[in-house]
Simulated assay, not measured.
Amino acid sequence: MGVMGDKIAKPAKLAKLAKKATPRVAVCFDSFKGCVGAEEASRQVAAALCEAGYEAWALPMADGGEGTARVLTLAGVRQPAVDMALKAGLGNREGTSRARVMEASTFELGRMLARMSGSEGEILLGVGGSATCDGGMGLLAALGARLRFRGAEVSRPAAKDLANLQEIDLSGVKAPRVRMLVDVRAPLTGAEGAALRFSPQKGATPQQAEWLDGALRHYASVAARCIGCSAEELMAMPGGGAGGGIVVAGRLLGWQREWGAEYVIRQWLPQLQQADVIITGEGRTDESSAAGKVPFALLEAARRLGKPVILLSGCVRVPQGSGLLDGFAAVRGVSPLNASREDMTAAATVPRLKAAALHELLGLFGC
């Protein structure tokens, strides 16, 4: 049984904070996908708290998925930042869609990065929200790698070509320096990997997901020969399944990888240090959120800073007794049970977030 609707869960008893003349609150929402973005949710709730007499500021969050580049700009990061979803995401203008996961390619993303190869310093690449499952083959081809396939020559590799890959030659690659901000810790293959866990969300049928998992295993064996490691190492690499396996291509190119939520949190650290309490949340919090998603990454950072964290998500689906929520000062799912489409709009969700934030702060501060 999970924590749902308007039910409040306080797994850990927290003594009320001493009253302060003006309590300081950092509002740090991730996006509520399909409902309200991180920036809007954080700004509107912070504004409501200021009207109620708190000192509050909006620190929008992201984990490497769609919207990460915008959040980094808001946080004052001057390095160029790109969302993978811009060129290889569901519904982007290059035409990838849920019905075409086998045809989807990271080629256009590679072309964009190739044009940025003259950039000074490092490019930040948000790896998440992709429609692809090509292991980054398209990216490699666009950056100048020579990929040899059985049968006909392939100029724009996609997921359907994975099983025919025979060789990767990186000698002609011209690529910028990139730091990949990874949104999930999933491996490349297996039950929690790019194909079996995530490709159904991109439109793959069960049969296609099984085929893709086997094809990615083959891809790992070819890629491993290219850099002199074992296929098992690539298949099990934490985060290797992010972005449809593009992290493996990044490994071949020598790109750095980092957990996206942790990177974003570091950019806001001075502001977080000034807060008395942190409010965070996302569209849905469940057991998978503990694997590097914003609320739990923030909880870990707040623990080091000695700050309490309030979790306000659209819905919370965590089994009772799991202990996953024990570190939060308060937990609330703001959407009603059996929420309708109208219940999941920004116009419906933001007022609930405001009311929930005020309610929980009253419980902590008594004011």
Rank of each mutant, 00 (worst) to 15 (best):
Ala41Tyr: 09
Tyr54Glu: 13
Val82Thr: 04
Met84Val: 03
Glu39Val: 14
Lys20Tyr: 07
Leu17Val: 02
Ala69Trp: 00
Arg98Phe: 10
Asp83Glu: 06
Val25Thr: 10
Val36Lys: 03
Glu40Ile: 11
Asp83Asn: 01
Arg100Phe: 05
Gly53Leu: 11
Glu51Asn: 13
Val36Asn: 07
Ala47Met: 12
Ser31Leu: 08
Arg78Glu: 06
Leu90Asp: 09
Arg70Phe: 01
Glu55Ile: 03
Val82Tyr: 01
Val101Thr: 14
Val71Glu: 00
Val36His: 02
Gln79Ala: 12
Ser42Asp: 08
Ala58Val: 06
Leu14His: 15
Ala48His: 06
Glu66Lys: 01
Gly65Phe: 04
Cys28Thr: 05
Met61Ser: 02
Pro80His: 10
Val45Leu: 12
Gly95His: 12
Ser31Ala: 15
Ala81Thr: 03
Glu66Cys: 01
Asp30His: 08
Ala26Asp: 11
Gln79Phe: 00
Ala18Glu: 15
Asp83Phe: 00
Pro23Asp: 13
Thr22His: 12
Ala56Asn: 04
Leu72Ala: 02
Val101Met: 05
Val45Trp: 12
Val36Pro: 04
Glu66His: 02
Gly37Glu: 08
Phe29Asp: 08
Leu74Phe: 00
Leu59Gln: 00
Val36Glu: 11
Met102Leu: 12
Glu40Ala: 15
Val82Gly: 04
Asn92Cys: 14
Ala46Leu: 07
Leu86His: 13
Pro23Gln: 11
Met84Arg: 08
Ala26Gly: 04
Arg100Pro: 09
Arg24Ile: 13
Ala85Gly: 04
Ala69Thr: 01
Met84Asn: 04
Gln44Ala: 12
Cys28Ser: 03
Ala99Lys: 14
Arg24Tyr: 07
Arg70Met: 00
Ala26Glu: 09
Pro60His: 01
Ala46Gly: 11
Leu72Met: 02
Ala75Val: 06
Leu49Phe: 07
Val77Tyr: 01
Arg24Lys: 15
Pro60Val: 03
Lys19Leu: 15
Arg43Leu: 05
Val101Leu: 11
Lys19Phe: 08
Ser97Cys: 10
Arg43Asn: 14
Glu55Ser: 06
Leu49Tyr: 08
Thr73Gly: 15
Arg24Cys: 12
Ala88Lys: 06
Ala47Thr: 13
Arg24Val: 12
Thr68Asn: 03
Glu40Thr: 15
Lys87Thr: 03
Gly53Cys: 08
Thr96Arg: 13
Lys33Cys: 11
Tyr54Pro: 03
Asp63Trp: 04
Gly53Gln: 15
Gln79Trp: 05
Gly89Asp: 03
Arg93Asn: 10
Ala48Pro: 09
Ala15Ile: 10
Ala88Val: 05
Ala69Glu: 02
Val27Leu: 11
Leu86Gln: 09
Ala46Thr: 14
Ala69Lys: 00
Pro80Arg: 12
Leu14Gly: 09
Gly89Gln: 09
Glu51Ile: 00
Thr68Asp: 00
Ala88Leu: 06
Ala46Glu: 05
Ala52Gly: 06
Val36Met: 05
Leu14Asn: 15
Ala38Leu: 03
Pro60Cys: 08
Ala18Ser: 14
Leu90Pro: 06
Glu94Ile: 10
Ala75Phe: 00
Lys19Ser: 15
Val36Thr: 13
Val36Tyr: 08
Arg70Leu: 02
Lys33Asp: 11
Gly65Thr: 01
Gly89Thr: 07
